[in-house]
């Protein structure tokens, strides 16, 4: 399973990546939505994208909208990972096509829980 971690903070990318790696994912990173789309457009396989909202060049909401508009990428699970935690923002993200939403700060357990909900725990992980 491969995850694309998209955040303009290197620290946050490392935290999310290492949490996902411990769960069994392979990870690639991008600093904003445009860079992330480049990975997809290059044909790289992505099962899960963890997406920050506020980023330069292309923000997370725009990235979600772009991905959902392209049928070739319909199997990419999209999870927002963001400080935006107002009700209205979460509704916007889900309406744009995000599958799940994780509010910062989050724990490693919370990430696991979300992946469980999405049916994305890699098979080797299941006891």
């Amino acid at each position: 399973m491969r995850a694309l971690v998209i955040d303009d903070s290197r620290t946050m990318r490392r935290i999310v990546s290492s949490t996902l790696e411990r769960i069994g994912f392979e990870t690639i990173e991008a600093g904003h939505g445009r860079e992330a789309l480049d990975h997809l457009e290059a044909g790289e396989r992505v099962d899960l994208a963890c997406i920050d909202w506020n980023m330069p060049v292309m923000d997370g909401l725009t990235f979600v909208t772009e991905v959902r508009a392209n049928p070739a990428w319909r199997d990419v699970t999209l999870m927002m990972v963001t400080t935006e935690s107002e009700q209205g923002q979460i509704v916007r993200a889900l309406a744009a096509g995000a599958h799940e939403y994780l509010i910062k700060p989050f724990t490693a357990d919370a990430v696991r829980d979300k992946l469980d909900l999405l049916g994305l725990i890699p098979a080797e992980e299941l006891a």
């Binding site: 959902r68 319909r74 509704v91 889900l94 309406a95 744009a96 096509g97 995000a98 599958h99 799940e100 696991r112 469980d116 909900l117 999405l118 049916g119 725990i121 992980e125 299941l126 006891a127």
Partner: peptide, 17 residues
């Protein structure tokens, strides 16, 4: 908790999956 696979989730609003 024992991790389990959840096969169905609420579909995102306004989108097909």
């Amino acid at each position: 908790p024992t991790p389990g696979r959840v096969t169905s989730t609420l579909p995102p609003r306004g989108a097909t999956r």
